[in-house]
Amino acid sequence: MSMYDPLRDKLIANASASIKMSFAEIEALIGRSLPNSAYDYDAWWANEDPATTNHSHSRAWTVAGYAAEPNRTQRTVTFRRTS
């Protein structure tokens, strides 16, 4: 079980083409703070192939059929449906 499973489950349950969440909302959902790299680097939000990535956070949204589009200045991320 990944700490990002609650995020995956929320995205799977979402019927919209996109969902915008604040970093704080994601932290409340997963029950802990995002790592500093999520705040500092767009690369943390990369949309990696879920079959090959070792990054459980990326797998959470890609398995759910979404791509992440971060706005680190506003501390938000928009997840857009890809499939």
Rank of each mutant, 00 (worst) to 15 (best):
E69V: 14
T82H: 12
T82R: 15
R81C: 02
S16M: 00
N47C: 15
W44A: 04
G65F: 13
P6Q: 10
Y41D: 01
A17Y: 07
D49E: 13
P6E: 12
S2E: 04
Y4W: 08
T53K: 01
W45H: 07
T82I: 14
S37K: 05
E48F: 04
Y39L: 00
N14I: 06
A64D: 04
E27T: 07
N36D: 05
P35S: 01
D9K: 11
L29H: 05
S37I: 03
W61F: 15
T73C: 06
M21H: 06
T76Q: 15
A13P: 05
D49F: 10
W44S: 02
A38C: 05
H57V: 07
I19S: 06
W61R: 10
I12E: 14
N47W: 15
A67V: 12
K10V: 06
M21P: 03
A13W: 04
F23Y: 15
N71L: 11
W45K: 06
R8K: 11
R72E: 07
P70G: 09
W61K: 12
D42L: 02
A17M: 08
K20V: 14
V63I: 15
P70M: 12
R59P: 01
E48G: 03
N71W: 05
R72M: 14
L34I: 02
N47M: 12
A38G: 06
T82D: 10
P50I: 00
T76C: 15
G65L: 09
S16V: 00
R75F: 07
D9H: 08
D5T: 04
W61N: 05
A68F: 13
D40R: 08
I30D: 10
A67C: 05
N71Y: 07
A43F: 12
K20H: 06
L7Q: 08
F23V: 10
I19T: 09
R75E: 14
A38K: 03
T52F: 05
F79C: 09
D5V: 06
H55T: 00
A46Q: 04
N71P: 13
A68S: 14
S83E: 14
N36L: 05
P50H: 04
G65Y: 07
D42K: 06
A24Y: 10
S56I: 01
M1F: 01
N36V: 03
T76L: 15
A24V: 09
A68E: 10
L34F: 00
S37W: 00
H57E: 04
Y39M: 02
F23N: 04
A68W: 14
A38Q: 02
S37N: 00
R72C: 10
V63A: 11
A46I: 02
M21I: 10
P50S: 02
T78K: 15
A64T: 03
A68R: 08
W44E: 01
K10N: 04
K10M: 15
T76F: 12
E25Y: 05
N14M: 12
W61A: 08
S2F: 01
S58C: 09
Q74W: 05
D5N: 08
R80N: 12
R75S: 13
W44P: 01
W45A: 07
D9S: 11
L11F: 07
A67P: 01
V77W: 11
R81I: 07
H57I: 03
A24I: 02
N71E: 12
